[in-house]
Structure formats: structure tokens, C-alpha cells
Simulated assay, not measured.
Amino acid sequence: MAENSELARQKRHYGLIRERLTRPGIAARRAAHIEELERQLVAFARDSEAKERQIAKLEIDLADAAARLLAQARILLADREKQGSDGEDGDRPSVDEIVAVVLKDFPDVSWDDIISVRRERRLVRPRHACMRAVYEQRRDLSLAGIGRIFHRDHTTVLAAVQAAGGSETVY
């Protein structure tokens, strides 16, 4: 008897749940909820596109700023070279002159190739030769300073100098 009453209670309970799920208001609420989610999705897509455009604009601005900074650095470097040659060491060659002499042996390589980020095999020897020549002829420049000129780390300059000089210790 207890089992029949429990079974009857479960049937009533499931019947009420079925009735609630099949009411017309539930389907309308689900449809409204789905429409709201679709509106939110469209809004998120628009927002995402706007942010992508903003990121692209910022990347262009960053590239422009980097180019301006590089141009200013070249101007400052040229001024520094001129000031250095006007002082006591008037016979000291500029970095540009040293690199031009070295690059005569490598006719297919330009200064832009030397300072580029490319790591092609054809550029490694001339780049290292230029770094070594600058290091040997301009002892007033530190390894870090030479690295900045060539857009490299000071350890790259150190490796280039030591590769040519054998086991000589460079500080």
C-alpha cells in the first residue's frame, strides 16, 4: 500500500512538471531569452570589430613612432659622430665610414641589410665583419654601444669580435 501511494505521488509530481513545461508561456519566454542572447551576441561582435580596428590603429601608430625614434637616433648618432671628430681625436673614423669600407668587400649587402632583423646566412659574415671593424677602430665605444648601433645585443657583438680574434678575451 505504501508503494502505491508513493507511486501515485510520483505520477502526480511528474504530471505537474510536464504540465509546467508544456504551458504556452514557457516557449515564449525561451524564445525571448534566445532573442536577447542573439542581440547580445551581435553587440559583442560589433564591439570586437571596433576593438580590432582600434588595435590595428595602435599598431600603425606604434610603427610610426618607432620609425620616428629610429630617425631621431640616427640624427643624434650623426651629431655625436661629428662632435667626436671635432675633439682631440680628430683622426677617429665615424662608424658610417668604417662600415662603408667593410661593405666594399660585400657588394650585395647594404647598411639596411646589416641592421635588419633578418638572419640570412649571406648577411652574417658582413654584419660580424662590420661589428669587428667598429670594435677595433673605435675603442671609445662599448660593446653595448656598438650593439645599439647595429640593433643587436652586446653579447652578439662580443661573439662577433671573439670569433675573429680567436681566444682573445674581450671586456
Rank of each mutant, 00 (worst) to 15 (best):
R80A: 01
R92Q: 10
D96R: 14
S94R: 10
R119S: 01
V101N: 01
V101P: 00
A78N: 10
D91L: 04
V102L: 00
A78L: 13
W111R: 15
D79H: 12
R119V: 04
V117C: 11
I115E: 06
F106R: 01
L77S: 13
E81N: 04
R74Q: 12
P93C: 01
D105R: 12
Q83K: 07
K82Q: 14
L76Q: 11
R92N: 01
R119M: 01
D86L: 15
D112N: 15
S85N: 11
W111G: 02
D108A: 14
Q83M: 13
V102E: 07
D89H: 12
A100T: 05
D89M: 08
R92Y: 06
I114G: 03
P93L: 07
V117F: 05
G87H: 06
L76C: 11
A100I: 07
P107Y: 13
D113V: 05
V109T: 14
D105E: 15
I115K: 09
S85H: 06
D108R: 15
F106G: 03
D89C: 08
R80G: 03
D105C: 13
L103A: 00
L77K: 05
P107H: 14
K82H: 09
L77E: 13
K82P: 03
D113G: 01
D79T: 10
D79W: 05
D105W: 05
I115V: 15
D91N: 02
D91H: 04
L76P: 09
R92C: 01
V117H: 02
E97T: 13
S85I: 09
E81Y: 04
D91V: 00
K104T: 10
P93K: 05
V117Y: 04
I114Q: 09
D108Q: 15
G90N: 08
R80P: 00
I75Q: 14
S94Y: 00
E97A: 12
D113W: 04
V101L: 13
R92E: 06
L77F: 05
